[in-house]
Amino acid sequence: MTYMIVMLMAVSSAAGLWIPGLYRDAPATEAMFRGYDLVSLIIVSPGLLAATLLTRRGSARARLIWAGLLAYGVYGYAFYVFGTAFNDVFLAHVAVFTLSVAALVLALANLDVVGIANSFGERTPVRTVSVLLLLLAVPIGAFWVFFSLRMAVTDQPPADTLLVQSQSGLHLAYVLDLALLVVPYVLAAVLLWRRAPWGYVAAAVLSVSGLVHQLSYIAALAFQAQAEVPGSTAFDPQEPVIVAVFLIALTLLLVNLPSRKRAARARAVP
């Protein structure tokens, strides 16, 4: 299924980038998805292929990265499936989304969670990573909840991000952020803080997925600015900080997960 995802993602992303007018949406939405396509084509597709091949060779790090990229496929392509008009690659987008859901569920169901958790070094800074995940989850969750409650009381529309979106697009972003980012980040942080096996896995998977999402957001801003979308900006000053937090959290986890050879040597030592 992953090979099918890679192929369909690469083809549909290339089409979105190089076929004029493929997206039959407003200019802001078209530019946003072209930015997403760039990241899918040059990062997610080759990353998935490499991680899959390394996973078959027994790399635990690659397995977590593979699952993280599949998680991005679920989150990122939910925007394509639910946030665009019909277009020539509609079925490819649906297939990538559906296959990503199925592959992620099967990957996690067949993951040796306890074995991977036990492979992490004792000095893994789990509480530092937990705090970083909470720093990523709590502000966006608090803002989205506040703006949603304010709308319920005052009928004032929720605040937009620097990424120019329609109200329907903003609604979808709120739904996906609250359901697929905020709640999972908090749960992963709590589990990791308690050193529960699933905490290690969830934190790594979500860090990979979140990092790619931020790169997609940065690319979308640049594409909107290049397309001269009214109200667009090419740079969000918060993004370098957010990307750095994701990178730090992911690095702190993966550097404390030994390679297959190191783990085998460690088990061989009496």
Rank of each mutant, 00 (worst) to 15 (best):
V94F: 05
D112T: 04
L64S: 02
G121E: 15
P125V: 14
A71E: 06
E122C: 06
V89Y: 03
A50P: 13
N87P: 00
L54W: 15
A109V: 08
N110M: 12
V89P: 00
V114Q: 15
L64C: 02
G115R: 10
L48W: 14
D112Y: 07
A62K: 03
V74L: 02
A107V: 11
T52R: 15
F97K: 04
L54F: 14
L49I: 10
N118A: 14
S130R: 05
A85N: 02
I116K: 09
V96E: 01
V74T: 02
A103W: 11
H93N: 10
G121H: 13
A71H: 08
G76T: 04
H93T: 06
A78R: 03
A71L: 11
T98I: 07
V114D: 15
S100N: 05
A92S: 06
V74R: 01
V101I: 14
T52D: 14
R61L: 06
T52H: 15
H93S: 08
S119F: 07
L53W: 14
R61N: 07
A102H: 12
F90N: 07
L54H: 14
A95E: 00
V94K: 03
V89C: 01
E122T: 13
L48K: 14
A117P: 08
V113Q: 10
A109T: 10
L106R: 15
L48S: 12
D88M: 13
R61Y: 09
H93L: 05
Y72L: 09
G121T: 12
L53T: 13
D112C: 02
V94A: 08
N118M: 13
D88R: 08
A67M: 10
A71F: 13
V129K: 02
A71Q: 07
S100E: 06
L64Q: 02
N87S: 00
A95S: 04
L104V: 02
Y80E: 00
N118I: 09
A51T: 13
F82V: 00
L111W: 11
L54C: 12
R123W: 14
F86T: 02
A51Q: 09
L111V: 08
S119C: 07
V113N: 08
I116C: 05
I65W: 11
G58Y: 11
A51E: 07
R56S: 09
A109F: 10
G121I: 08
G47E: 08
R63A: 10
F97H: 07
T128D: 05
F120G: 04
L53K: 15
T52P: 02
L111A: 08
L54N: 11
L106C: 12
R57F: 05
G121Y: 12
A60E: 10
R57W: 08
A85W: 00
T55N: 11
G68R: 02
L64W: 03
G115V: 08
G115D: 05
T98A: 10
H93P: 02
T55G: 13
V89R: 03
F97S: 05
A95Y: 02
T98Q: 04
R61G: 06
V81F: 04
G115W: 11
T84W: 00
A117E: 03
F79Y: 04
T55M: 10
V114R: 15
V94D: 04
T98S: 10
E122I: 12
A71R: 11
L48R: 14
W66I: 03
L108Q: 12
Y80W: 03
A78T: 04
R123P: 07
A60L: 11
L111Q: 10
G121P: 09
A102I: 15
